[in-house]
Amino acid sequence: MIAALREFRGAGGVLGGLVLLVIALIAAAASWIAPGDPLNMVARPLTQPFADPRYLLGTDQLGRNVLAGLVHGARVSMSVGAAAAAAAICVGILVGTMAGFSGRRIDNGLMRITEAFQTVPTFLLALALVSVLGASALNVVVAIGISSWPPTARLVRAEVLRLKGADYVDAARLAGRGSLAIAFMEVLPGALQPVVALIGVTVGEAILVESALAFLGLSDPNLVSWGGMIANGRALLRTAPYLVVLPGLAIAIAVLCVTLAGDGLANRLGIVGRR
């Protein structure tokens, strides 16, 4: 039974990775799959899904093609999510490494800053940053990156501190290795390994934050995004619930696949992630 479950997890990772790949391909080929600006009116408003084969998933109140919106939205959601997570992880690694290797004073200072960032409600900070910086895709990436690096930083710092005291680091010191070699060749590779387990969760989280910002109208007005589509459909909950249901489903599937693929990757590398 346990073996079956493990197999399932492995299969989940592979399946998640495959679907993720498909979503990424769709996002990359968006202008080829659904040519033209998805914000243009193309058909009669509020065509129900499956009613017209040309607009398979129907149209919204302004006659925009929902399927085209989803396809183009994938591009925004996935790239913003991935970029923001990458930014968060990079900042986290940098801060965590510095704190772990520095003396007590710098470590303390960096940890207070990390704590401060962790204490401010994450989404509130992202919201404030976007509203001050202006709603562009780049600013959304910056805002999410700034508000979600602390977990990575804490993890990396803890690992660095743990490995700094390991016997094999003492052994390397006795073998005459310099402190830079010890930091970069002996400690860091081990300390960064558990970060892999955080990648899936961080990207998924970033996609969710991006969609929530877009839902509140804080996204680039010239780009379609899944969260924005939901906000748009909100006014027609009674007559056209599909305008809300479909983009939400897209978000959920994307985040699920990212998490599964991340889990699968961590399992593959033998990192037991529990976060």
């Binding site: 390991a166 016997d167 094999y168 003492d170 052994a171 390397a172 006795l174 073998a175 005459g176 290795r177 002996e186 590779p189 081990g190």
Partner: peptide
């Protein structure tokens, strides 16, 4: 030089034995 108590803990799990021996 020193020989440690736990032989597994005193080798970097990501380096081969020969690589560990090249350091000194």
């Amino acid at each position: 030089q020193m020989v440690f108590q736990d032989p597994l803990a005193c080798f970097n799990p990501r380096q081969s034995i020969a690589r560990a021996l090249t350091h000194p």
